[in-house]
Structure formats: C-alpha cells, structure tokens
Amino acid sequence: MAKVKIPENKVQELKDLCASYNNEPGELINVLHGAQGMFGYLPAEVQEIVADQMNVSVAHVYGVVTFYSFFSMLPKGKHPISICMGTACYVRGAEKVLDEFKRHLEVKVGETTPDGKFSLSCLRCVGACGLAPVVTIGERVYGRVSPEDVKGILGEY
C-alpha cells in the first residue's frame, strides 16, 4: 500500500475532529464519516491517526472501514457515478446501463478512471423509483436512463 503523507495541518484537523467527539470509541463511525468528508477517502494513515486518538486498535478501525460500503480506502473520482440497482431500476434495465458505463469508462464497479475523473459504484434505491432506471453523478440525478444515453451523459463532464 502506497504511503500518502498527510500535511501537518490536516493531521491537526483530524485530531481536532476526534477530540470534538471526546475521542470516544463509540463515536468511531461518526469520526470516520467526518474524516472521509475531510480527505475524500480513508487512507491507512488516516485510520492510524484515528485509532491512536480514539484509543482503539488500528485493526478495529480497519474492520469498520471495510465493513461499511460508504467508507472507501481509494480516492473517489471527481464525478462519482452511482447506478441505482433497486428493484424498480433493476427490472427496468439498470444492469444494461451499468454495463454501458463500465464499457465506456473501462473500469469495474468500485474503481476510479486513471485520470481521476469518474468513479463507478452501485447503490440500492435512491427513492426515485418512478424515474427508473436512475443514475446519479455527484449531486445530479438522471432518470429513465437507457444504455444509448450513457455516452451523452458522460459527454457533459
């Protein structure tokens, strides 16, 4: 695993974040949420600092990070793409839409394009079943997406 050197001021910010939760081990998930917000992802160094501050083992922090799909140890793309795989989207062809995104971006689910522009993930139901199949890119929501639309959508970025 490549080492990333976190700048001193960021380290302090992270320690302050832990302290804002009183370094309480029960608040680990909240701290990790905050840390991911801060760095965009949770590299090993961040997890080590958090473990040290909250007085839990690094293994435990790593266990939590790998358990919850929200947490990522890889940097996300500038434009994170999520394909809804809820039931409605699925029966309306979300899988074919996903395949098309994979083909265009040449990445698998959970990966980021080499230029760091897009990352691809799946999620379960965004609560917009009437628009199925649904794709979100960043904060934007695309409804009734067909495989043919994919190229055009990517072209917007």
Binding site: A44, S57, V58, Y62, G63, T66
Partner: peptide
C-alpha cells in the same frame, strides 16, 4: 487477541462472504 490479551492485532474485516479475521490492512 482483543479481550483477553488486549493486543488488538486481529479484527473481523470486510463483510458477507468476504469477511475474515485479519490484522489491519
């Protein structure tokens, strides 16, 4: 490792079928 010895090397990592007990990273 964790409760008796408090060494803290091992933890369950990942989830579902991929879950396993392992050291950090």
């Amino acid at each position: 490792c964790n409760e008796v010895q408090t060494v803290g090397v091992l933890s369950a990592v990942n989830r579902g079928f991929e879950s396993v007990v392992a050291p950090a990273f």
